[in-house]
Write a protein that binds this DNA or RNA. Structure first.
Lengths: 208, 208
DNA sequence: AAAAAGGGTGTACAATTGTGTACGCTTGAT
DNA sequence: ATCAAGCGTACACAATTGTACACCCTTTTT
């Protein structure tokens, strides 16, 4: 039961979801959205909402699922674009930032949901991040880029990396989506954060 | 003008602010609170709200100010408790976690506000974090614990530390306030994060 | 061809919301 | 002793909310 079937991609359903995201993109917080408000933005009648979602929390949960798809697309691209080991960090952050710009509202929703009102959404996003960190650790292992780290320590480092990147999105909330200069700053800073983390991970065993 | 005078500490004003925090502590998101809801929780009549705050955003801003006080208290204690340089990280995280438990709702509010609805609150919290990072960098310089780092690099590392700790609060949202085991796990992990960051900072110059 | 189910619309309503106006009690300054 | 300001209360009201009900059209199943 409770299987999340997506077989019949209803038009209105999508309209409602993107309407919610649009409102989030306009600066509203997801927790403050009402059913009526969302349906108004979507251009449908209020009762249509209930045909697809039980409540706002439910809509949030389904948005988390779609967020997962976006993140997986991002990972796939990052994996297929592995340059020499030197540039791997810059390039990854690059891809990150680009996806964050392309799917701005999705990531805003994520940033909000981390401390959001619905425990279920919170846990969903947290779980996506965990998955992401685990995949990252796998990739690094596979590429033999962290052979001297124990599994536990590598996981630790990847967890820290994902947190740092996730926090980056809250930075982007503050700047206009086409303020190239500011975004470039954020990008550079994030890259240096990650470099610092990996240098720390590299020297971890020998010191601790 | 617009001087934030606190000369006459009105009873109701405090009741309203702690009422908002209480609701946040109960799992609600600040952005979804209404004036009526807060006054109900505070046990005062709705119109009393307007005697002290122009709007919910205004209340949020004043909460940020108080949050600043809490953080300053925390810093003072951390500074007066500097053990040998070895244990400085564990001890600091210790103090962090304790304050986070004692002022749980305050820090929940902070975690929410970082991606909150009000741009002003968002910027206020961000500014508190910047201040915190700057103070941390100052302390480390004063204690000669980072003499080999350039000012810019030290700032970078401290920024990363503060972000990591701030993210920790979103971890604490998910666990019960008296689940000692889970909190201990969070504490240990955060400590290792910070150690990793500082090891990275220590080897920063030589590699990059 | 008939039946059923899924998804869409409009109307309706009670509850709750934000906020305006008017009235009283304290309290400190004159 | 008076007065004004500040704070709290009571009442009022229009707007907005979530949701129930009753229909209609299209697609799928039988």
């Amino acid at each position: 039961m409770a299987d999340r079937k997506r077989r019949n991609p209803s038009e209105t359903r999508d309209k409602l979801m993107t309407a919610a995201l649009d409102l989030v993109g306009k600066g509203r917080h997801f927790a403050s959205l009402g059913i009526r408000e969302v349906t108004r933005q979507a251009g449908v009648v209020p009762t249509a909402f209930y045909r697809h979602f039980r409540s706002m929390d439910d809509l949030g949960l389904q948005l988390v699922d779609e967020l997962g798809l976006v993140m997986r697309r991002m990972m796939r691209e990052a994996r297929s674009n592995v340059p020499q080991a030197e540039k791997i960090m810059e390039e990854s952050v690059n891809i990150f930032i680009r996806h964050a710009r392309d799917n701005r509202t999705f990531f805003m929703f994520m940033a909000q949901g981390l401390a959001g009102e619905s425990r279920a959404v919170q846990e969903g996003i947290r779980s996506e991040l965990r998955f992401f960190a685990a995949e990252l650790a796998n990739d690094l292992r596979r590429l033999r880029l962290a052979s001297h780290l124990s599994d536990g320590d590598l996981d630790l480092a990847c967890d820290l990396v994902v947190r740092t990147v996730a926090f980056t999105f809250t930075d982007m909330l503050g700047v206009s989506p086409d303020d190239d200069y500011q975004i470039d700053q954020i990008q550079k800073r994030t890259t240096r954060f990650l470099q610092m983390i990996f240098i720390g991970a590299n020297h971890w065993q020998s010191e601790s």
